[in-house]
C-alpha cells in the first residue's frame, strides 16, 4: 500500500466511522467479558464466603457455580451479538469504504 493511499484512507470519514464504532463495540464487549471473569476470579480470591453461599436456603446451587456458568453463557452470547452486528453493519461500511478507495 502506498503512502498516499494510506493517507487517503485515513482521511475518509467512513474509515473514521468504521474504526470508531468498531473500536467502541469491541472495547465495551471486551470489558463485559473481563468484568465477568474478574468477578469470578476475584470472588474466588477474596469473597469465598459469598461464592459458597447458596442461592436460596438449602439449595445446592451456589453463587460461585452460577457465576461460572453465567460467564460461559455471557461469552457465547456476546460473541453471537458481535458477529451478528459486525456482519450486518461493519462489513457494509467497509465495502462502501473500499469502493470509495477504488478497491472492489
Amino acid at each position: 500500500m502506498s503512502q498516499s493511499e494510506t493517507e487517503k484512507c485515513l482521511a475518509n470519514p467512513k474509515f473514521k466511522q468504521l474504526t470508531q464504532s468498531r473500536g467502541w463495540f469491541s472495547l465495551i464487549f471486551s470489558l463485559i467479558i473481563t468484568v465477568g471473569y474478574s468477578v469470578f476470579v476475584l470472588g474466588m480470591s477474596y469473597a469465598a464466603g459469598f461464592m459458597s453461599s447458596p442461592l436460596t436456603e438449602g439449595s445446592s446451587m451456589t453463587y460461585g457455580i452460577l457465576i461460572a456458568v453465567l460467564v460461559i453463557i455471557i461469552g457465547m452470547v456476546c460473541s453471537g451479538i458481535y458477529t451478528w452486528w459486525a456482519n450486518r453493519h461493519f462489513d457494509v461500511l467497509k465495502v462502501e469504504l473500499l469502493k470509495d478507495l477504488g478497491h472492489e
Binding site: 463495540f25 469491541s26 472495547l27 464487549f29 471486551s30 467479558i33 473481563t34 465477568g36 471473569y37 469470578f40 461460572a68 460467564v71 460461559i72 461469552g75 457465547m76 456476546c78 460473541s79 458481535y82 458477529t83
Partner: peptide, 13 residues
C-alpha cells in the same frame, strides 16, 4: 473452563 471461555470472545473482539 471459565478461563477459556473468557479468552475466546476477547480474541474475537
Amino acid at each position: 473452563a471459565v478461563g477459556v471461555m473468557a479468552a475466546w470472545p476477547v480474541i474475537l473482539f
